[in-house]
């Protein structure tokens, strides 16, 4: 029986879809059977991020309303065997699915897959309730901004109330230089408020945008720092003990060099 993990945040645009895509690809690269579920009904984009948009025939609402069987709606990734997507519906709204249907769907999927990862919509309303209904674990994504952390805190409270205990935190778009200048919340600042286990820190990295726009995932980009961060997080989910990578190494070395040659 596989695990059902929901990726959530409260605030929009912090990196839920990016995280879902990269963890899915990461886990599948380790030979796991993974199903990504786009629960952001009406605003689907996990398929676009994965470059699978043109292969959609049926969607999640077709499955829950009995128009087709799960198997017919699943899209196999073209690059990585083991990775599958259950796309969201674009033309229906969040009320087209209810929490009981989501539970049933997740129970079916976990029989077939090692990991079922659900991309949650922003907000705390129906879409959120649907997305968490069938999950047994949760990953909360935040960026180092006061408003995002506030929403993450709210979400953690709601997850706890829904008996989704011990959610894990991913900090995305972290910028060490800004933190050093005191212009951005540090990992410690966020930990002090949220006080949940840290699963990983993903730096701000334009490679994320570059790969996403091509329908690719940065986790497969060997050279990028954000790819390394997602590979580390993948291994932590698989149970390995991987220390946090040193995000400052690069900038620290550069600034030390610059100082040496008298540029600063």
């Amino acid at each position: 029986m596989g695990e059902v993990i929901v990726v959530t945040s409260g605030k929009g645009g912090v990196g839920k879809t990016t995280t879902t895509a990269n963890l899915g690809m990461g886990l599948a690269s380790h030979g796991k059977k993974v199903c990504l579920v786009d629960a952001d009904i009406g605003l689907r984009n996990l398929d676009v991020v994965l470059g699978l948009e043109n292969r959609i025939v049926f969607d999640i609402v077709d499955v829950t309303s009995g128009v087709c069987r799960i198997r017919q709606a699943l899209i196999k990734d073209k690059r990585c065997e083991g990775l599958h997507l259950l796309p969201a519906a674009q033309t229906k709204d969040k009320t087209a699915v209810n929490p009981d249907q989501m539970k049933e769907l997740c129970e079916e999927l976990r029989k077939e897959f090692d990991y079922v990862i659900i991309d949650c919509p922003a907000g705390i309303e129906q879409g959120f309730k649907n997305a968490i209904a069938g999950a047994d674990k949760a990953i909360v994504v935040t960026t180092p901004e006061v408003s995002a952390v506030r929403d993450a805190d709210r979400i953690i409270g709601l997850l706890e109330a829904a008996e989704l205990r011990e959610p894990k935190l991913i900090i995305n778009r972290y910028r060490p230089k800004m933190v050093n200048r005191g212009d951005m919340m540090s990992i410690d600042d966020m930990n002090e408020i949220l006080a949940i286990d840290l699963l990983g820190v993903v730096p701000e990295d334009e490679q994320v945008v570059v790969t996403t726009n091509k329908g690719e995932t940065v986790v497969r980009d060997e050279k990028s720092q954000s790819g390394q961060a997602y590979r580390n997080i993948t291994r932590r989910i698989l149970g390995e003990n991987v220390p946090l990578m040193n995000l400052e190494e690069q900038s620290g070395l550069f600034s030390a060099l610059r100082k040496m040659i008298g540029l600063k």
């Binding site: 929403d151 805190d153 709210r154 409270g157 709601l158 706890e160 408020i193 006080a195």
Partner: peptide, 24 residues
């Protein structure tokens, strides 16, 4: 427990919290 953003307590009497009261 800690009170997280969006959570609140209203009580006619004293309140002791074994945890934090977070922003919000």
């Amino acid at each position: 427990r800690t009170l997280r953003s969006g959570q609140s307590i209203y009580h006619d009497g004293n309140v002791v919290i074994l945890g934090d009261v977070n922003p919000g």
